[in-house]
Design a binder for these strands. Structure first.
Lengths: 333, 333
DNA sequence: TTGTAGGCGTTATCAG
DNA sequence: CTGATAACGCCTACAA
């Protein structure tokens, strides 16, 4: 079966024109049941499989969605990917995966490749995308949906989570309980989320007429961040640590443990994303739930919509998030 | 810029034939430098971007590699994906991601979609692929490389890790140290790896003329597996627990901790894969290092090779693995 | 070194 | 409801 049957051969075998075959292939109603079955029989017999390459050229569509993920594989990203792939596939779109791995101009390279591949739409996680790249996409009429950052603009939609709001609520509660020495531990990646969190913290402090000065940036590697936090905790009394990701919070957890600080008594610790490992930490980590899978799934849905309709659907979806208290914190939010 | 320039317009602008344009596009040497620059200039001016769809049809190649990952996102899979994507992209192949999410026949559906899409090659992780699907691929001359399972066959290669061997070595060492009550905690997924591990264990026991009866299968969910292990540990004295994945081992770790069992003294615990969270566990988890990224990268390299050469390259690469002792175990291997 | 012409396998637009 | 026939944009012998 080296040679694949073409639509012509099916037509010949069924004794109809190739146009008719094409019609039954595309479920066009204007075909009599009789000829349709005849054609289907021929398809079966010839083991005919349509050639997507040819269809793509004829329709000028590739039925592909590009998914661009940041270079670092945070644990929650795999869930997002699952969401995108599931929904994409279910709607007959293949998803092509790109990662922004090499240098700074990589996004531009990727965008070029996307345009050349005639990929129909692109979904990008946590916008490391620059305005230039976005302009290039829209110039080529390629719709874009961004996961993480709410954006406006035609041919552009987004699905995100409001880190700022939930953070504000959590911090406010802590301030009300007289937890004032609050530290926000941030890594190096994912600036966007960090900015939002920071903004939420500051807002709560502002409302309390106090000043936030607890920003602590650490290395991304576990061993380094652990050491830096350990060092900080050794010299400073802290009421609450909030880590930009669960893994950062766990580093803090371990550092505190090793300093014999009583967690949830002398010190509350909270992470973000409700990673599966937050439950495994000892004590189990309090965290902010983020609907990882849904971020991906909804993004893909938006994209499919944009791709299907002529009218451009601009949409900025904000998904729900909430605080999950476990054993690493005392205050109920 | 709604309308994209075609090769014809470039040709007209450069006052050459489209064949010549095609040649410079493909770096064909048979073009004089002079006309080449002329053509390049026209390309720049027209902002011409070749249409991959058309090229694909003409060459009957899609420059795409399919990557099929199992339904469950184990933490290590994202590293494997990174490896595949990096190497694929670097060699001008897009990687299309599929996941075996829906029901049992999903693999077959995916395979059909792959054939229809004229995807050049497929890489699959930890072979949940059935022989029927494999046959279908080779019937369509689509090369396959499997990550996890060594396989033979034309148009087929693999890259894997020898779980059996490393397991054998570890267990042997433990038996030599008179650790006889050994429990292997297995989940439900990834039967292939589990089988290999089990085989390694049995081999070591066989050599010791003893009988292994410590197989314990638990739920995949953390909370369930924790409970089941807790219950087991409560009623049984155990010397060594080996978990099929780090997360399973961590569940055991926590259960033992809660039963006041002294880890690395009364009980050794070991996981697999050297996940980043194994370092974060308290105590830090001993584990088997598996080159996750390289599994993906090498697989993509093999695939690219197969795709490039006419001669079929069959290769079964086995990557190195080793034991990493941390604080959850006492015995040095 | 360059140009001509046919082909890749579909879809889509007409007539009939 | 069905059948010709022209795109779709590029590649590639074959000629010149």
């Amino acid at each position: 079966m080296n040679k694949k049957a073409t639509i012509y051969e099916v037509a010949k075998k069924a004794k109809v024109s190739l146009a008719t075959v094409s019609r039954v292939l595309n479920n066009n109603k204007n075909v009599s049941i009789k000829t349709a079955t005849k054609v289907k029989k021929a398809i079966k017999e010839l083991n005919y499989i349509p050639n997507a390459l040819a269809r793509n050229l004829a329709t000028n569509k590739g039925y592909q969605i590009a998914l661009i993920v940041p270079e670092v594989s945070f644990s929650f990203i795999s869930r997002v990917i699952s969401g995108v792939v599931d929904v994409g596939l279910k709607n007959n779109y293949n998803v092509v995966l790109y990662s922004t791995n090499y240098g700074k101009d990589s996004v531009n390279k990727i965008i070029n490749s996307i345009i050349e591949s005639r990929i129909d739409g692109v979904i990008i996680i946590n916008s490391e995308i620059n305005t230039q790249a976005m302009a290039k996409l829209s110039k080529n009429d390629i719709p874009l949906t961004i996961i993480g950052t709410p954006v406006k603009g035609k041919i552009r939609s987004s699905v995100s989570v409001n880190y700022e709001k939930i953070t504000y609520e959590v911090i406010r509660k802590y301030l009300q309980n007289n937890y004032y020495k609050i530290i926000f531990i941030d890594g190096e990646y994912n600036r966007f989320v960090a900015t939002q969190i920071l903004s939420g913290i500051k807002q709560a402090f502002l409302e309390d007429n106090t000043y936030f000065d607890g920003y602590l940036q650490v290395d991304e590697s576990y061993s380094q961040s652990y050491l830096q936090i350990y060092d900080y905790l050794k010299h400073n009394k802290v009421d609450l640590i909030i880590g930009a990701r669960d893994s950062l919070a766990i580093a803090a957890l371990n550092a505190a443990l090793d300093l014999n600080i009583v967690i949830a008594e002398d010190l509350d610790i909270i992470g973000y994303n409700n990673t599966k490992y937050s439950r495994m930490a000892r004590p189990a980590l309090s965290t902010i739930e983020v609907p990882k899978y849904d971020l991906g799934a909804k993004a893909a849905m938006q994209m499919v919509k944009m791709l299907r309709k002529e009218e451009i659907v601009v949409q900025n979806e904000v998904l729900d998030t909430y605080f999950v208290r476990r054993n690493s914190s005392k205050i109920e939010v």
